[in-house]
Amino acid sequence: MNTQDIERLIGKYEQGQTTAKEEELLKYWFSNEEVPEQLAIYKEIFAFYDAASEEELPDPEFDRKLLDTLGISEENVQNKSGMLRRLYPAFGIAASIVLLIGVYFIFQTQQPNTGTYDDPEIAYAEAKRVLLQVSGNLNTGMDELSNVKSMSKAVDELDNLEMLDNGIKEMKKISILDKSKQMITQ
């Protein structure tokens, strides 16, 4: 950027035609360059705009006065933050729970063998193998169960025990007879 460019830009500036970017450029140029005498006024003007944009509302009590006027006393504001402070332990507990769950999941996913397969074909083949094995064992198990049939035959045999039972009942009558015999003899 030479002085001629700047003078042309200043002309545009005074027509109100410069963009925000061009004005930034002007401010930057005037704050950094050795400025020729015919442009000295602009150096001061742009320096003024820069400083003026930094000015602050001077009253240090402004915020408190505003809160007072709005009827929001500092006490209310402090109460709210006090309540927050009381909740801090709860935040801590919640955070640790989240952390523990997180750590658990990280370990879970980091375990090398989780019994899962990335390739679907291998997973299918493995699943098929396991299912066939299970069904094979199941069949041999069924064979073993045929012995249960003979057990059921034995249960049929047990029906005969009823007759025994009847016999015992008859025996009881005899024992009564026996007791009465003893009484007589005493």
């Binding site: 000015e55 602050e56 509302l57 505003l66």
Partner: peptide, 30 residues
């Protein structure tokens, strides 16, 4: 608040009045 103050002070050319206006702006916003 500083930006609004600068504007108010530019127009009113009076610092306490400008501060007053800024307070009123915040009350209206509230």
């Amino acid at each position: 608040k500083h930006k609004l103050f600068r504007l108010a002070n530019r127009l009113l050319r009076n610092i306490p009045e400008a501060e007053d206006v800024v307070q009123e702006v915040f009350i209206r916003l509230w």
